[in-house]
C-alpha cells in the first residue's frame, strides 16, 4: 500500500545550517498527525518543502503515490494540499469573506477577458461562490464576521479565518502551522473541536503544535522532529511520556 503523504531523505541547508537532515516520515489518510519538536527542529521547513515553497537539496515528497518534486505551490494546492502560516499572512485589507473567496480555485472572471466580456456570467458565478464561502465561514464559526475587514478581527478570529481560507482551496490534506498558539483557553477548545470536525469531514491534518495539551487531545499520531531529523513517531502518550524526548523538548540539548 502506498503511503498517503510520504517524505523521504529530505535535506535542506541554509548556508552552513542543516535545517532538515535526512528527514523522512509518513502521514496516514484521515488522521490528525501532530508535528512536534523544539524550536529550530525544522517543522516549518518541512511544511515549506511539502507545499513547494522550498526546494530540498535532496530527498523527495510524494502524495498518494505521486511525487511532488519540483512542483510549483499552485500545482500542489491543485493536487489537494494546502497550508496555513504561523504568522497568518491574511489579506488584512480585504473582508473575511473576500479572504475565503480569494482562495477558491478556478473562478470565472479571475482573468480580465471573462471579467470584461461576460460580466453577468461572472456576477452570477460569484453569487454561488459567496454562498459556498459563507458556508465555510459558518463551519469555522465566523459567519457573523463575513463582511468585516480582516484587520478588525480578533487574533483568535484571524486564526480561524486562516483555516477557512485553507478549506476554501478544497484541499484534502491540510497543513496547519501552530493553529493553537496565542489563543485563550476558550478559543483553544473551539479550535480543537473544529479540527475534530474537519477530521470527521474526511480531511487529513498535519499540525505543527507546541502545546502538549492540544497534542494529547487531538493527535492520532505524533512525529517528533529534532535537528531536522525524525527522532520518534508514535501515539501522543508514548511521545509525551518518553523521558528522553522530554529532555530534548524541555531541558534539552539544543
Amino acid at each position: 500500500m502506498t503511503a498517503y503523504l510520504q517524505a523521504s531523505g529530505v535535506d535542506v541547508s541554509f548556508g552552513g545550517l542543516k535545517a532538515l537532515n535526512d528527514c523522512g516520515f509518513t502521514v496516514q489518510q484521515g488522521k490528525i498527525t501532530c508535528l512536534v519538536g523544539p524550536n529550530g527542529a525544522g517543522k516549518t521547513t518541512i511544511f515549506n518543502v511539502i507545499t513547494g515553497f522550498l526546494r530540498p537539496g535532496a530527498g523527495s515528497v510524494s502524495f498518494k503515490g505521486q511525487t511532488l518534486d519540483g512542483w510549483k505551490p499552485q500545482a500542489i494546492v491543485a493536487a489537494g494540499i494546502a497550508r496555513t502560516f504561523q504568522n497568518l499572512r491574511l489579506f488584512v485589507d480585504l473582508t473575511a469573506i473576500d479572504n475565503v473567496l480569494a482562495s477558491m480555485p478556478a473562478q470565472t472572471g479571475e482573468e480580465p477577458v471573462a471579467a470584461i466580456f461576460r460580466p453577468f456570467h461572472v456576477a452570477s458565478a460569484q453569487r454561488h461562490r459567496r454562498v459556498e464561502a459563507l458556508a465555510i465561514l459558518n463551519r469555522v464559526g465566523l459567519i457573523e464576521r463575513a463582511n468585516d475587514f480582516t484587520r478588525n478581527l480578533s487574533y483568535g478570529e484571524q486564526k480561524l479565518l486562516t483555516i477557512a481560507r485553507v478549506l476554501a482551496t478544497g484541499a484534502e490534506l491540510i497543513l496547519l502551522d501552530e493553529p493553537a498558539s496565542g489563543l485563550s483557553a476558550g478559543a483553544l477548545d473551539g479550535v480543537m473541536a473544529l479540527l475534530r470536525r474537519l477530521q470527521d469531514d474526511g480531511k487529513t491534518l498535519l499540525v505543527v503544535e507546541h502545546n502538549t495539551r492540544v497534542v494529547q487531545q487531538i493527535a492520532d499520531d505524533v512525529l517528533f522532529l529534532h535537528q531536522g531529523h525524525l527522532m520518534a513517531q508514535g501515539t501522543p502518550e508514548a511521545i509525551v511520556n518518553d523521558p528522553a524526548l522530554a529532555e530534548i523538548y524541555f531541558g534539552g540539548t539544543i
Binding site: F53, P73, V77, A82, R83, R89, F91, A102, P105, T169
Partner: peptide, 14 residues
C-alpha cells in the same frame, strides 16, 4: 488586491 498585500499567501491559495 490580494497580490498587492501578500504574494506568498496568494501562491499558497493555489
Amino acid at each position: 488586491r490580494a497580490i498587492r498585500e501578500d504574494e506568498l499567501a496568494v501562491a499558497a491559495a493555489g
